[in-house]
């Protein structure tokens, strides 16, 4: 599934562009990280990708078909969007029914929708004994995964996620990203937005950097993080502090594991 964004701009109010002249393309089966501060236009971009907003200027293509030529109501099922704090949208009496809401809207029969939901719940690793519980009785991390399952169950080809790890502890975060890794291996395209350079450096294969509505950098993760204008991730900050003390380390360093490996290499030499 190929997604192509061509000189897209979007403004909420006349004269103020939240996103201006952004172009890039997305390959199937890859994890993309979009990085940017609050107000950089990253959330706007996600809503454009999912068809919730229509670009003020420019075009978006899905498999070489322009968005405007695709029936608008089918777009959310092909490019699934997971909002920030998605657990705040849960509303059904049971987890399984909530997850089946999307598939049902897609036009699947009740039985099919339940099957889709079960499959998605297995994917996100929510145990069977939670399926018939009220979503409000789950823990924070479980709620987040249930909400994620709600979008996965619609079986979208592309999955876009807004700050999916926000507010989760380490365990919860690792779990979510291992789910995304799994989906990627199934051939899905994953695009996640985060204001944490650490998460992007750790989990993304390719990176887009947005700043004040403009695309500042785009490329393979290592390539992007070696650019001096891109915000530094923690591991690289630490690495540069160690370098200052005269210990020679390569750059950029993406994770703490990598950093410790490099330190071992230096010592072994």
């Amino acid at each position: 599934m190929k997604l192509r964004v061509e000189s897209v701009s979007y403004s909420y109010r006349k004269g103020v562009e939240a996103l201006s002249d952004v172009s890039f393309s997305v390959e199937q089966g890859t994890i993309y990280g979009i990085m940017g501060e609050t107000g950089s236009g990253k959330s706007t971009l996600l809503k454009l990708l999912n068809g919730l907003y229509t670009p003020t200027k420019g075009k978006i293509f899905l498999d070489d078909r322009e968005y405007s030529s695709i029936t608008k109501s089918t777009l959310p099922f092909r490019v699934g969007l997971v909002f920030q704090y998605p657990e705040s949208q849960l509303f059904e009496e049971s987890v399984i029914l909530d997850v089946a809401f999307g598939p049902k809207n897609k036009g699947r029969s009740k039985e099919e929708a339940i099957m889709d939901a079960e499959k998605a719940l297995v994917t996100v690793g929510l145990k069977k004994d939670k399926w018939n519980k009220s979503p409000f009785n789950l823990s924070g991390g479980e709620k987040r995964r249930a909400a994620l399952a709600g979008v996965i169950a619609m079986n979208p080809e592309v999955l876009v996620l807004d700050e999916i790890a926000a507010g989760l502890d380490k365990e919860g975060k690792d779990r979510i990203f291992s789910v995304l890794e799994k989906l990627k291996k199934e051939g899905k395209t994953i695009i996640f937005v985060s204001h944490s350079p650490d998460d992007v450096a750790r989990y993304a294969e390719r990176v887009l950097v947005l700043n004040k509505g403009k695309l500042k950098a785009e490329g393979e993760v290592r390539e992007v993080f070696s650019s001096p204008s891109v915000p530094k991730n923690q591991s690289e900050v630490i690495a540069s502090e160690i370098r200052e003390k005269g210990i020679n380390l390569p750059s950029p360093i993406l994770t703490l594991e990598e950093l410790s490996d490099e330190i071992v290499k230096v010592i072994d030499k």
Binding site: K47, N50, L52, S73, P76, F77, G80, L81, F83, P86, S88, Q89, L90, F91, F101, G102, N105, K106, G150, V151, M154
Partner: peptide, 28 residues
């Protein structure tokens, strides 16, 4: 926006459907 992204048809269909389609918004 979020429920629309899950394909929710807000305010469409017959009156009963319309009323039902509001639940995913009202409850949260």
């Amino acid at each position: 926006d979020a429920q629309k992204s899950r394909g929710s048809k807000i305010g469409e269909g017959k009156i009963v459907d319309k009323a039902k389609s509001i639940m995913p918004i009202i409850i949260p």
